[in-house]
Amino acid sequence: MRLLKTFMNSAILMSALALVSAAPAKADGKLTIYTYESFTAEWGPGPKVKQAFESQCNCTVEFVAVADGVALLNRLKLEGASTKADVVLGLDTNLTHEASETGLFAPHGIDTSGITIPGGYSDNTFVPYDYGYFAVIYDSETVKNPPASLKDLVEADPKQKIVIEDPRTSTPGLGLLLWVKSVYGDKAGEAWGKLKDRVLTVTPGWSEAYGLFTKGEAPMVLSYTTSPAYHLVAEKTERYKAAAFAEGHYLQVEVAAQTTNGATNPLSAQFLSFMTKPAFQDTIPESNWMFPAAKTSAALDPAFDTLVKPAKTLIFAPEEVAKNRKAWIDEWLSAMSL
């Protein structure tokens, strides 16, 4: 009896909830884009991109957002061929190999000549829309001599701490792992063994690490070269800076692609093409805080000119990452657990 009543109560609540959530509008065509949450946040590129594309396609764009790029690929694997996604936006190059192995993605067939990625990028399935470099961000109020190279970071005074992310649970964590691997190669394990004493803690994701950093728990954190741009533009402070590393910086390229289902919807290719145009690219720098992959209609905010320009771009081929990821994480684990 009581149970029944509770169920009825929750049914009423549920319908109230349905009122709270917005109902999607109808239009001629519909494009479903799977992406990650920060893309669709109200300050993210999502809302502007939706508006700009809808104004020229006579269609409705529906975003479906999951936690991050990895969750995006998982979602697709779970849904398999029956996925509703026309376009998947937000995988990075560490995931593209695994993604194409699923057989769920179709070639884009669009002109990508407008895209410029450091070190070049060409793929007939995945279209890059932005990129960024991993970097150690430091608090210039407490760090007077920031490390000038990865070697410096590994070997200098272990009392000056850094917070890093876990490669088992986060993308930046994996980024640092690959960065160290691309610089140290077979000696990566030893490098981690030295760096370990400098690592204050290893957090599950970027938010925890950056939160500890801005709280002053550690004077350094692993983030992106673009992080200082946020503080400059939004907070008008030069306090947080990226350290330029002599060996170069590891690159992250974010891509989108159409699914095999989506290939039957002409809007998919149209969107991928739109993605390389200024209308889309303009939203990237100051809402995704990454570098645009193609031309924007105006020059970037001067803050972006002050950012670290990597001496060298480091990146592994997607196949290489897919093949070695587990072994490299094990190497990291045993070095860090000693």
Partner: peptide
């Protein structure tokens, strides 16, 4: 993970998340 200081402090929950999410 956050207060544990490094991967020595890892719980099964982390391993479950890793195997379902990343792997």
């Amino acid at each position: 993970l956050t207060l544990g200081g490094g991967p020595r402090a890892t719980t099964l929950e982390v391993a479950i998340y890793q195997s379902l999410h990343f792997d």
